[in-house]
Design a protein around this nucleic acid. Structure first.
Lengths: 125, 125
DNA sequence: AAATTTGTTATATATTTTATAGAACAAAAG
DNA sequence: CTTTTGTTCTATAAAATATATAACAAATTT
């Protein structure tokens, strides 16, 4: 799985990494049960600091996406059905952005089409 | 229009304000052509700093939602159809969150239903 | 015309966030 | 036993966030 970090982005490095790992899981590049690289290894590969990778992994753990076993490693969790707390979190993250789309002139159908397009784009390949 | 700022939130104050103004426009509490309060007035009303309100207004301007007339005021713009640059920005903001929903076990239909629910919730009074 | 209000600009301070660096630890894995 | 693991700690630096105060010229109001 290829990860690209843009140091000059306005998006913090740990968040770029978090998002790209999430998308990697979503599109099946990595699967539940797989172990993520050690924080030292991944940091060296990406040319970033160990603690930055560590922060990203703990973000993923807080989101319920991976499980960190102390002194062992980080493993991708499987999910049959979304939990209520995760659902609420996603609801609150999506709301401002959907409102922004509406204000800027998008109809409900245009928003739904965009979302469907994104889902398809993530799934393909 | 009622705005509530939570100083202890992990979401920056200027962003809370930006989002609530956007949602206010989306649900019709304020309309295109309306002028926003002066930065000093709103800051006093909310008990926050003038520069924080100013930053929020310039965020709204960057998003293409309001127009700031120097020495005059901020006016809400109308939108017939979304511009490509705004569309791309919303696309990039939505993508990581939709991927997160997928990883946490949401199906395409569950995601589309959630988005439709949010649109309806914003539209209703 | 005078006074007030406007957004803007500037300086200053403080806290939090982000990112890196290096070191040390105990536990797990080889 | 050696290496690797995540964790913890200290330290530094830059950027983001938030507040405070002051001053300016232009616009608005009185």
């Amino acid at each position: 799985m290829i990860i690209r970090i843009e140091p000059e982005s306005e998006v913090p490095i740990y968040m770029q990494l978090t998002n790209q790992i999430i998308e990697g899981i979503a599109k099946g590049a990595i699967h539940p049960g797989d172990a993520l690289p050690s924080v030292r290894t991944l940091a060296a590969d990406l040319g970033i600091n160990m603690h930055t990778v560590n922060k990203s992994y703990h973000e993923l753990e807080k989101k319920g996406i991976i499980e960190i076993v102390p002194k062992s490693g980080a493993v991708i969790k499987g999910h049959s059905h979304i939990e209520q707390s995760s659902y609420n979190r996603i609801y609150n993250m999506l709301k401002p952005q959907i409102a922004e789309g509406m204000v800027l002139g998008m109809t409900k159908d245009e928003i739904l089409n965009l979302v469907e397009e994104i889902v398809n784009e993530i799934k393909k390949t």
